[in-house]
Amino acid sequence: MTGVADPTNAPAANTRAASEYGPLETRLRERRADGRKLLVPYVTGGLGKDWVDVVRACAAAGADAIEIGIPFSDPIMDGTTIQEASQRALDIGATPVSVIEQAAGADVDVPLAVMTYYNLVAHMGHERFCEALRAAGIAGAIIPDLPLDELRLGGYDEAARHHDVETVLLAAPTTTDERLADICASSRGFVYGVSLLGVTGERTSLADSARRMGERLKQATDRPALLGVGISTPDQAAEAAACADGVVVGSALVRRLLQSGGPDEAQSFVALLRRALDAA
């Protein structure tokens, strides 16, 4: 940490007004304060004509926020399920602008964050990207190949702060404690703890590293800390949420959508996740 004050660790943090945070973080903090475990499903934008209905279904089934993937041709943090979904969405014409504009029409009472790769952001331009998100009412952005150092160097950070785009940073099992503190301080919305060494995709059980990741995050910050990558079933979600504030579930939902599932399928799966988290 190079002299960057961590507002979440400062003694005054608890007395800050909620408006200090953007809509994504505000909502997640409120829900957490209600004693609720947080659920953030991931949906590939542009995957089928009814993908916005899928987003609405997730909201109706109890999501606390929703991640919308903007498909990229070379998603290096994604396993085969999300690769396939991205390719399918691209094949039927999804573009960054179309996904953002369609998401704007979702009209859900749940904060949205896009998840995409930096090349698409760089191509739109930092300003235009952030303006487009704001105009669409999208609160946050997750850009897994834009790590902390590059985020600060290239001017993205300034644009995001200027336009109040809450940019969620990822922490990994390999992240050092020193970097972890920096990531927690700089992240907005929540901190995304990568639960295992690997890319997105379903796993048969929760990785041992998930618990450790959750514990480290909870120790490092009071910003909402969610675990994601590899969390595949309601049981795994509950298990992961026990050591963090909540979970992100992507491939398990997207696989159902790829297997010709639509909004109904999404709604019932997200409801199952919700129930498991509420019962935990």
Binding site: D145, P147, L148, D149, E150, L169, T174, T175, V194
Partner: peptide, 11 residues
């Protein structure tokens, strides 16, 4: 530059 997922940064 170094535009990679956080997991790879330490390596």
């Amino acid at each position: 530059g170094r535009f990679v997922p956080e997991t790879l940064i330490p390596a």
